[in-house]
Each structure stands twice: as structure tokens, then as C-alpha cells.
Amino acid sequence: MSATSLLQIDKLNKSFGENQVLTSVDLNVVAGEVVTIIGPSGSGKTTLLRCVNFLETYDGGSIQIDGREVGFTDSVSRKRRGEADLAGMRAETGMVFQSFNLFPHLTAEQNIMLGLRRVRKKPHKEAREIAQHWLARVGLDHKADSLPSELSGGQQQRVGIARAVAMDPKVLLLDEITSALDPELVNEVLDVVRQLAVEGMTMLVVTHEIAFARDASHRIVFMADGSGRE
């Protein structure tokens, strides 16, 4: 099992002060798999995703992506990786946020190009081509030069997805990416995710869209009281 897992979470513990949020969470995701996490508010879904790309440190257990320990040099010594090492490791996962979090001073295209240029070190021309390719994929090739403030919520979120997948991550983390959207904009975003699923993108998805969870994901994990059940 572990040999084929792309993302392997073992006995993960995480608390904020007195508040134990994750208790011995185990989760394995194989390459190409789409796993949806559902659960009541406050059950730790966001926290779990944020541990996977080390936006939050965790207190115990282990997270491995492609056999590499996340955040720490190894699960035994739990020595925190250096900042450059952490940055390189985070580039292996893509994250799409509930509140989009597009950089307000950059156009749609520049939002996508930033990581390609500065993290992937692509030359300007190539970064631009990749950005344009992904903008076209999410149906926004005509909005390349628009600032986030000039885009609708659904369009912003599609740029958010394009920004994450353009980096060619091993795992894509989606945290309630349609919760901030008007109902009529939800499908244009979910359609993009469905297409990525069909193409074999490995994804860990937190959502309240039960219909989407049922038809687009391979597995649904229910989280309650800080631990997961299938």
C-alpha cells in the first residue's frame, strides 16, 4: 500500500494550544486518485490540507509525498526543514483557496507566471506560454490582462486553479473552492476540476458539494472529531 501511495499520512496529530484538532489521522492517496473530505465545520478539514503543504506545522505523525517527509527532514528526528527546502517542497503541491487569494497587483497571466518564473525558473517566454495554455484551459484566454478586481468570483477561482496546476504539482489541494461563489458560478469552477480529475490529476478535495463528491471523486472520507473514516 505505502509503496504505491503518492500522499501518505500516518497518525497525524495537530492541536492549536489546548484544542486537539487532528487525532491520529491516517490517509493514503495513490497517484491519479481524487479523494474528497467531508465533515462538519470545525472538524479539521482545512487544517489537514494546510498540514499537507506545511502551511501549518504538525505535532506528531508523518506526512509523505512521493516518499519524502513533508516539513521535517524525517519523521523520527522531526527536524524542521530550512526555508529554501520548505519552499521547494511546497512547490510539489498546489493549493486552491476558498477566498481565491489572487495577487491583487498582478494580472491573471502574471498571477500564473509568478511561480513559473521565480520557483520553476522558467524563462519569461516559456512561462507566458504555459500561463496562456492554462488560461485557455479554464476558458479565460481573453482575460489574460485583467486584474483580479476586474474578474467575477468564478473567473478568479478559475485563475486560482490555473495558477496551481500550471506549476505541475504532484498533488492538488482544494479547500472549499466554491464556497465563496454565487450558486450560478459554482459549476463553471467544478467543471474545470472534473476535467482535471478525468486527466488523472491527484487531488485532495474538501467540499460541501455532495453531488460533486459522489460523481467526481474515487473516495469520500468523512471527518469528525479530528479523525477520518471512509
Binding site: L55, A87, G88, R90, R163
Partner: peptide, 11 residues
């Protein structure tokens, strides 16, 4: 959230 986005992309 913007700083998180920057972190998450590997800056």
C-alpha cells in the same frame, strides 16, 4: 491569504 498563496506556490 496572499502570504499563504505565496508560500503554497513555493516562494
Amino acid at each position: 491569504g496572499l502570504m499563504d498563496a505565496g508560500k503554497a506556490m513555493g516562494l
